[in-house]
Design a protein around this nucleic acid. Structure first.
Length: 575
RNA sequence: GGCUCUAUCGUCUAACGGUUAGGACGAAUCCUUCUCAAGGAUUAAAUCGCGGUUCGAUUCCGCGUAGAGUCACCA
């Protein structure tokens, strides 16, 4: 028999069962089938395999369609839009399956299973005890009863060795042990997947079946059904498994595989997700090293010969990188548009924020754009927004509640920690002096004699320059920072000597926004207060230098504050 | 346990039997920068083991080893 199958038009399908959400693996299968159809100007069908009423989860179908739509995977025929071969829901096609089942019965190739479920379970049990694979056909009844629908209908399989060709895996084969008398129609009248998908693929003229590699083992059974029905089979395209991060198991819902729509909620771009998914088990090959591709580019270069055979670990770091790259590619306008769309999706009301903050739309857009190259996902942007916009003390915590609702904190990479909601941008929330102290100790710059001046002198002079700035000019301190006396002073003394300590003093962090920006946010009074508080500690640090009693790890000036150093931790209490 | 499949840097992968085994993520270092990010440059890092075929093996074959899948009136 020739493996060549003639077809004029490529038809592929995605046929999920409505048992819940879609995870990475399911979507990847859908994507590849869709890519192949689009690549060949073929047809892509969305069919629902709802033959197991017990496992069905309400709302799944809508959820599945929403997932595909988010990624831009569209279908030409399917449950919601109908088509030439409607209906596309298997529970509505029972008559069809029965018709084909009867053909097999008439040919003497299918029979009613006379055993009770208990009896079959016992067969299986004893097979397990003897460490043998369970084969129902070992108990095939000699004179089965007539099939009246109350008993399962089984295929009288042709016990033989099967060989077949897979477009990805090449030539495959399995021995007689691999075939058994599978159930075609269950006792509840519904077909099994094994039978239904074959009938539907036949009637819907499917040319290529895309599925993951767990189906390789059951393929001989399917081949037996094709042969019994005397129909030609579609091409098989077997996709490699996706392994969990641990790399030991196939990624599945039980291993915490996420709902694909969770990635939408986390602020990933659909085009980035599509790009990422396409590269799980496929690449353009042939020396084409590009990895950031648009949807159209992927369709154009997609082919079957570069689908991987071996499994791949799911790697979220790569997804983050791909998402960043896609963000960078966006125009300013496109970025703002998509960001706002995301806010809308997760329930952040931009108009409310604008009204509350008295911001113009343009100002807000400009805020957003400055983070374009700095964020990993749009969720990071929400956190930025929180940090930058929520900076007055009298706020009613509007954004905070919304940020918490989507649980932004857990997904931030460590390098972005300083973008997390930042107390120090509130006027009244001065940084913890212990943190300021520790950073200066860590950098060893308090009494650094290699500098022209001490930190204390630098800070005092900074303070004196800032005092001179009038409150009207302070409002423009960020915008006009290059014209300030402080900037000129910093340039003269070395910006690292002035600006970095100032950043630490203002924020208590070694990484923070521009100190000028912080000063603008918190205002003159708070800025100067933070500098003065730090200067008070440095006074005492001088005392510590002169302290001869090293065992005494507590230095205090009861009038001002206490410093405690214990186990390398310093705590400072200001009275 | 039977059957089936798989095996290149830490990860994803490229290489019609002939390459100094290439690229990307991640990591590290340096440059730039007041910090972070971004950007630029650089570095470390792999053909699972043993046999065979061949002038030549990452590539073909066998055996090991390791991992995965499957053995439902689930899909």
């Amino acid at each position: 028999m020739s493996n060549k199958i003639q077809y004029n038009k490529v038809v592929t399908r995605f046929a999920p069962s409505p048992t819940g959400f879609m995870h990475i693996g399911g979507v990847r299968t859908a994507l590849f089938a869709w890519l192949w159809a689009r690549k060949n100007n073929g047809t892509f069908i969305l069919r629902i395999e709802d033959t197991d009423k017990k496992r069905e989860v309400e709302g799944s179908i809508d959820h599945i369609m929403a997932s595909l739509k988010w990624l831009g995977i569209d279908w030409d025929e399917g449950v919601d839009i109908g088509g030439e071969h409607a209906p596309y829901k298997q529970s509505k096609r029972l008559y069809t399956y029965k018709k084909y089942a009867n053909i097999l019965v008439e040919k003497g190739l299918a029979y009613a299973d006379p055993y009770s479920e208990e009896e079959v379970a016992n067969f299986r049990k004893s097979a397990e005890e003897n460490k043998k694979p369970f084969l129902y056909r070992k108990h095939r009844p000699e004179n089965p009863p007539l099939w009246d629908g109350s008993k399962p209908l089984r295929l009288k399989t042709n016990v033989k060795k099967h060989k077949w060709h897979d477009l990805v895996r090449g030539d495959l084969e399995a021995g007689e042990e691999a075939v058994d008398d599978l159930v075609l129609i269950k006792s509840d009248g519904y077909p099994t997947y094994n039978f239904a998908h074959i009938i539907d693929d036949l009637l819907m003229k499917v040319t290529h079946i895309f599925r993951a590699d767990e189906f390789i083992s059951s393929t001989p059974n399917y081949l037996a059904i094709y042969e019994a029905l005397e129909i030609k089979r579609p091409e098989f395209v077997t996709l490699p498994p996706i392994l969990g991060e641990a790399g030991t198991k196939k990624l599945g819902k039980r291993d915490g595989a996420k709902d694909i729509l969770d990635y939408q909620k986390e602020g990933y771009l659909p085009e980035a997700m599509l790009n990422f998914l396409a590269f799980i088990g496929w690449n353009p090959g042939g020396g084409d090293n590009r990895e950031i591709l648009s949807k159209d580019e992927i369709i154009k270069s997609f082919d079957l010969s570069h689908i991987q055979i071996s499994g791949a670990k799911f790697n979220e770091e790569k997804l983050d990188w791909i998402n960043k790259e896609h963000l960078k590619k966006l125009s300013r306008k496109g970025f703002v548009k998509k960001a706002k769309q995301y806010f809308n999706e997760i329930g952040i009301n931009i108009k409310e924020i604008l009204a509350e903050k008295n911001l113009s739309e343009t100002e807000f857009d400009n805020y957003l754009v400055q983070f374009k190259d700095r964020i990993t996902t749009f969720r990071d942007l929400v956190i930025f927004m929180y940090g930058y916009i929520t900076t007055t003390d009298d706020l009613k915590n509007l954004e905070i509640s919304k940020v918490e609702k989507i649980n932004t904190t857990s997904i931030l990479p460590t390098s972005y920690n300083y973008h997390a909601p930042t107390d120090y941008l509130f006027k009244s929330k001065d940084p913890n002096l212990s943190e300021v102290w520790e950073l200066f100790i860590k950098k060893n710059i308090i009494g650094d004699l290699s500098k022209n001046k001490t930190l204390k002198e630098y800070l005092t002079e900074t303070n004196d320059l800032l005092i001179e700035i009038k409150s009207n000019d302070w409002k423009k301190i960020e915008k006009n920072k290059n014209d300030t006396s402080l900037w000129r002073y910093a340039e003269k003394m070395g910006k690292g000597n002035i600006l970095w300590p100032l950043r630490v003093v203002l924020s208590g962090k070694d990484k923070s926004p521009d100190p000028f920006e912080i000063m603008k946010k918190i205002g003159k009074k708070s800025s100067l207060r933070r500098i003065k508080n730090t200067l008070k500690i440095i006074d005492i640090s001088d005392l510590k230098v002169f302290s001869t009693n090293t065992n005494n790890n507590q230095i205090s000036d009861p009038e001002v504050f206490n410093i405690n150093t214990n186990n390398n931790k310093t705590s400072i209490t200001l009275h």
